[in-house]
Amino acid sequence: MTGTRELEAHFTETIGHERRIEPRDWMPEAYRNTMIRQIAQHAHSEIIGMQPEGNWITRAPSLRRKAILIAKVQDEAGHGMYLYSAAETLGADRADLTDKLITGRQKYSSIFNYPTLSYADVGVIGWLVDGAAICNQVPLCRSSYGAYARAMVRICKEESFHQRQGYELLMTMMRGTEAQRQMVQDATNRFWWPSLMMFGPPDDQSPNTERSMAWGIKRHTNDELRQRFVDMTVPQASKLGVTLPDPDLRWNPERGRYDFGAVDWDELTQVIKGNGPCNAQRLAHRKAAHDEGAWVREAATAHATKHSGFAPFSSPNRPDQGSSKVQSEVQR
């Protein structure tokens, strides 16, 4: 017992001094589990997040936009990989995480359950959705868990490209025809409130916030980050020339911040429960990609086993030399 108490004291002291917890350190089980859940949920969001925009790659309006969009979606895949890799340092298993996503036992960000109806959505996702993600993620570069914090530093550098390409796309459309401006306004109308929901439930309905702050898992409350996002975004909207769909949105000189209207939390609850417009479609698509890739994974393993005598996670015996020789001769 004394041992555990000493370890716990050391853990608390490390966090108290703003030092990072590293993979093989002792940590409370609740810290480990919370961290795995958070990183996994974040990883799943990046992976599912490829779909709404991936939807438009084949219909990009120019080669330039297509190259940009491919690079962006590839980044999302990369971010998912950095994060799964960080989760694995805590003892999580990659295949198990994928299984938990596909079977709905772990969540991903509610925002990706909304459809992308026009090319303006690609721009608005970059501007608002990635903008909100940056607000959420910049403080996580100081997460108390080292491997997560390092992944976040890498991710935040790349997210900046995501947001800027989106805003630039929208500026271009706003300089276009009336129909194009209307597309931008329509996309803004649809994504504004779901973007505010990305910060999670209001503070008084977020029971784990206190412990997460004490453990350096969270750095700011949901409401603080939401307010920060609104304050950053309002001037961007007016520069762009779109109206944010909130009649209660106005500058409050006393607070020195923008007041904004009430978020429809019932909608968020419904989307999280699986009743958003695209939940079923997103999971089905992810599952199909995983299932249809099974033969590739198996073939690669078989190839590796045959050609290098490398048999991962099985007996240390090399496959008999004869057959691999035959194989290499066949190839020649």
């Binding site: 890799s85 694995e88 890498r154 994974r297 190839h303 590796a304 050609h307 991962p312």
Partner: peptide
């Protein structure tokens, strides 16, 4: 060190 990944063999 920058992170980790899964692969079937060293070349991959």
């Amino acid at each position: 060190h920058v992170g980790s990944l899964h692969a079937a063999d060293p070349q991959m």
